[in-house]
Computed example of a mutant assay.
Amino acid sequence: MAKIFSLFDLLPVYYATIENNSGNPIQPQTSDYENSNEKMLRNYEWWKVAEEFGKEGEATVLNYLSKQYNSVEKVKDAEGYDFKVVDLANVTLRIEVKTVQSFDSAVYITRNELNKANQYKSSYYIYLLVVNRNEKYADLFIVQNPIDFFEINMVFVNEVFKNKYINFENKAFRIEFNKSFFASETVVKTHVKLPFLF
């Protein structure tokens, strides 16, 4: 009998535990080829809940941006950011929203998002939303020009290992925020408490 497997079964998945809307924790499993269909479904469930949580975060930020700016546009995922905003000085800002459930959660950022951040420099922002579902609010932290702020080496980001058999490249990166990030004077100045809409 043939086994059915997916990419989730071939590679270990290292994501934080998240909760669905009913407050039940969902934790993906790493792969060992046993019960691969069950693990695939569990990872898929985790991915769908995480995706929905991200959309809820984007909706919360959209609500906030709509009160701050006259022109706010949700863009396609391929653009490398979530919103295009035109400010009062007619400057276009690009905003990527990352939503987490705790201060020690990690976020994932794609190479495309990092390349767009590098391209747009000071007009590119990461809005990190740390959600407290129990209290129905979220802490918003805003980082302008994340490439410079985090001192990201773009040569490393875009490095590709090639030989006659394969091209090996990073498509996404995991970012863990240290306590010093939340205590940073630059980040503290941008801290906003928002009602979480979901």
Rank of each mutant, 00 (worst) to 15 (best):
121 K>Y: 13
121 K>S: 10
122 S>D: 15
122 S>P: 10
123 S>R: 12
123 S>F: 15
124 Y>G: 11
124 Y>E: 13
124 Y>P: 13
124 Y>A: 11
125 Y>N: 12
125 Y>M: 13
125 Y>V: 10
125 Y>S: 14
126 I>F: 13
126 I>M: 13
127 Y>A: 14
127 Y>L: 15
128 L>A: 10
128 L>C: 13
128 L>G: 04
128 L>R: 15
128 L>W: 10
129 L>R: 07
129 L>D: 06
129 L>E: 00
130 V>G: 01
130 V>H: 12
130 V>F: 08
130 V>C: 05
131 V>Q: 11
131 V>L: 09
131 V>W: 04
131 V>E: 07
131 V>A: 07
131 V>Y: 04
133 R>E: 14
133 R>H: 12
133 R>Y: 08
133 R>W: 04
134 N>Q: 13
134 N>R: 15
134 N>A: 15
135 E>T: 05
135 E>C: 09
136 K>W: 03
136 K>G: 07
136 K>P: 05
137 Y>I: 09
137 Y>K: 10
138 A>K: 05
139 D>S: 09
140 L>N: 01
140 L>V: 02
140 L>A: 09
140 L>C: 08
140 L>S: 04
141 F>S: 00
141 F>C: 00
141 F>K: 01
141 F>N: 00
141 F>Q: 00
142 I>L: 11
142 I>R: 12
142 I>Q: 14
142 I>D: 11
143 V>N: 01
143 V>Y: 00
144 Q>C: 14
144 Q>P: 12
144 Q>T: 09
144 Q>N: 14
144 Q>A: 14
144 Q>W: 12
145 N>W: 05
145 N>D: 14
145 N>I: 04
145 N>L: 06
146 P>N: 00
146 P>W: 05
146 P>L: 08
147 I>N: 11
148 D>R: 07
148 D>K: 06
148 D>I: 01
148 D>F: 11
149 F>W: 05
149 F>P: 01
150 F>A: 07
150 F>N: 05
150 F>E: 02
150 F>I: 13
151 E>Q: 13
151 E>C: 15
151 E>I: 06
151 E>P: 01
152 I>A: 03
153 N>M: 03
